[in-house]
């Protein structure tokens, strides 16, 4: 099986004033293409930092990171932006939709920054996939929390990314909506995308193929779910 993500000895140190915060310490992580991975751990354990490094939003202080076999540490900022646009879809806890912008406008956002053929019909396709076809022209403030997160997922899907990264995507939702969102991620995963989600909740993590646990910037557990 192909290793879509291969990390060795990844560390991240934040310098705040004269104190250093070690957010990640010597992390090794390998993710296989098509995997559904959950990342768990207490608050401040380095989950988001790890996800930002995986998603090329941040650079590690030390260590090697191969994305689809390619060393990304030497790439410049615009190449990283291009890879984020083409290969990675982000979903955040706070949805981060553009205010006063329609569902369609929000979903089309990544297409401003990268080439995509038939972007409009592709947008309708992913909006359909997240079940919001009847809300295409609603503005984001006319939507419920669950609907907003669906829009964010459609936005993450539009460029056909290989990897979906979700940082506590259900953190702001009630359990019913959370399950709907998780079902959506499972569906996306079943179509071939590699999905990595950060979560606090065991029952959410239970949907993944594998769960890793972080504590103080280190991976303390790495367990496959036996189906």
């Amino acid at each position: 099986m192909e290793h879509i993500i291969e990390m060795k000895g990844i560390s991240k140190v934040y310098k705040t004033g004269d104190e250093d915060t070690v957010a990640l310490q010597d992390v090794d992580l390998t993710v296989t293409r098509g995997e559904f991975l959950a990342i768990m751990g207490p608050s401040g354990s380095g989950k988001s930092t790890l996800m930002h490094i995986i998603g090329l939003l941040d650079r590690p202080t030390a260590g090697q990171y191969l994305l689809e076999g390619r060393d990304v540490s030497r790439l410049n900022d615009s190449s990283l932006a291009r890879l984020r646009n083409q290969k990675i879809g982000f979903v955040f806890q706070q949805f981060n939709l553009l205010p006063r912008t329609t569902v369609l406008g929000n979903v089309l956002l990544p297409t401003i920054y990268g080439r995509l053929k038939n972007s409009r019909s592709r947008a309708f396709e992913v909006i359909e996939e997240v079940g919001l076809s009847d809300r295409v022209n609603h503005t984001s403030n006319q939507l419920s929390g669950g609907q907003m997160q669906r829009v964010a997922i459609a936005r993450a899907l539009i460029m056909n990314p290989d990897i979906i990264l979700a940082d506590e995507p259900t953190g702001n939702l009630d359990s019913k909506r959370s399950l709907e969102i998780i079902d959506l991620f499972k569906k996306i995963n079943s179509r071939g995308a590699t999905v990595i989600i950060i979560t606090h909740e065991e029952h959410i993590a239970r949907n993944a193929n594998r769960t890793i646990r972080l504590l103080d910037g280190k991976i303390v557990a790495n367990a496959e779910r036996i189906a």
Binding site: L57, A81, N96, I112
Partner: peptide, 16 residues
Amino acid sequence: TREIGLRKAVGARTVD
């Protein structure tokens, strides 16, 4: 500010 962060996350370069 958050919008700018998001745009960068979905692929906007500095120059964009």
